[in-house]
Nucleic acid binder design. Structure first.
Lengths: 145, 145
DNA sequence: AGTGAAATCCTTTATTC
DNA sequence: GAATAAAGGATTTCACT
């Protein structure tokens, strides 16, 4: 992993639709040279994909929360991510070391939707939950340093 | 906010570099009609931008953690996000309701880098910290449902 | 809001170094 | 690996509906 590739990654992390022409100007390479490098970064999985960043508040889901989950039955198989993947409000799911087993990040429209979601999470996974409400997002998923 | 715009958003959330031509085929609109809609979604801020999704493990930062922070001096002004924005390892910063005041999501290379980062966080913001290590990421920032 | 067409610009591949 | 060139597509603007 070398300087030019890192520069390409950081440019694309900040501006995912930048053209190969502009990437070439920014890196001092020809269009086809950056093109070749980007395709290699994609095929090696260093670039996992591209995403539009959505304003969820404007889209009608202003309420973000973290839900920490603890298994009720310790003998239950550890398949929580699969059990929870069907719940579309769950944006992220991390397995963690600490008091709880998983942390979920969710987005809903209203507190009542959160109540409903918590019931679905408990039922789908047989877990107890602890919820931390997000008051504001100072920044999220900043591009590379 | 209506069906066609929601479809465009969900297509671009999943594939941020999809061409206007392909968006047109997927929505049944002409290229110039989707183009106009996407530009409107961008200017209204519903699309905040586009990002390449990076594999941080391959990029040399395999260790992810959540750091919850609690102010030591309750009289201190509440400017933690500004104080912390200079620390590049902090990917996200949320203000939360609950026992702690903020949750940070960070990425570093090694436990020793985490130790170093925690010292910088405490010094920059005059806070106590509680760290939860991520063991694995089942999924993260899933596109829209 | 949407279409179709035209000009411009970008992407992609082949060739060469 | 990188550059150049050329063909094939995509983007963007505009006139019209």
């Amino acid at each position: 992993m070398e300087t030019t590739d890192r520069l390409i990654l950081s440019l694309l992390a900040a501006e995912g639709r930048m053209s190969f022409t502009d990437l070439g100007k920014a890196t001092g390479l020809s269009t086809s040279a950056v093109h070749q490098r980007v395709k290699r970064l994609e095929s090696k999985g260093l670039i996992r994909g591209y995403a539009a960043l959505i304003d969820h508040e404007q889209l009608g889901r202003p309420l973000t929360a973290f839900i920490s989950i603890t298994p009720i039955d310790p003998a239950q198989p550890d398949d929580y991510p699969e059990r929870l993947v069907e719940i579309p409000e769950i944006e992220s799911c991390w397995s963690v070391a600490g008091e709880e087993s998983y942390i979920l990040k969710i987005r809903v429209a209203t507190p009542s939707d959160l109540e409903n979601l918590l019931a679905r999470v408990r039922a789908a996974a047989n877990v107890s939950t602890r919820t931390t409400i997000v008051l504001s997002t100072a920044y999220e998923n900043r591009p590379l340093d």
